[in-house]
């Protein structure tokens, strides 16, 4: 995804609408702002939710196309959300991108085993995030 916007690759969902809805669950202020600004600029329909156990209800009520979830290593709330998302039938079609502050091979493996479709270890370049989100919206 070299284009500055991912409208071009955003594909039509079965219902016919464009896949561009992204929900961002991020506790980190500056990082959250930057991600939100970047994705919005790229044409995403972005909503933010607090990274808390209750967020799962919001997600179930209005499933987005991609969830971007920030997680600290051994962060029970974020991983709990991850588990809850994969247990919700409503969220079957939703792609999950995990942003984590550790990036050992075992962390990537755990993320993928727990149902994450993408994984970025901090620090990452915004370009990498846009790439990942674009890939997940496309697929």
């Amino acid at each position: 995804m070299n284009d500055s916007s991912f409208d071009g690759v955003a594909t039509a969902a079965p219902s016919g609408r464009t896949r561009n809805r992204v929900t961002l669950l991020c506790e980190e202020d500056v990082l959250g702002q930057a991600i939100a600004a970047t994705l919005t600029r790229d044409g995403a329909e972005l909503t933010r939710a607090p990274c808390a156990a209750g967020a799962i209800d919001t997600l179930r009520a209005a499933p987005p196309d991609v969830i971007v979830l920030e997680s600290r290593s051994h962060d029970a709330i974020a991983l709990g959300l991850c588990q809850a998302i994969r247990q919700s039938r409503e969220l079957d079609q939703v792609k999950l991108l995990l942003l984590q502050d550790s990036g050992r091979p075992i962390d990537r493996r755990r993320a993928s085993a727990m149902g994450a479709d993408g994984f970025l270890a901090m620090p990452f370049a915004m370009a990498a995030l846009r790439n990942e989100v674009g890939r997940l919206l496309g697929g």
């Binding site: 156990a53 051994h74 029970a76 709330i77 991983l79 709990g80 588990q83």
Partner: peptide, 26 residues
């Protein structure tokens, strides 16, 4: 039913018995 992550976390953060030092599961 699956074990909720929060409970798993809780077990991992506790000190294990039967280990030579006071170490947690994590």
């Amino acid at each position: 039913a699956p074990l909720p992550v929060a409970d798993l976390r809780d077990v991992l953060d506790q000190q294990l018995t039967d280990t030579p030092f006071a170490v947690t599961g994590q």
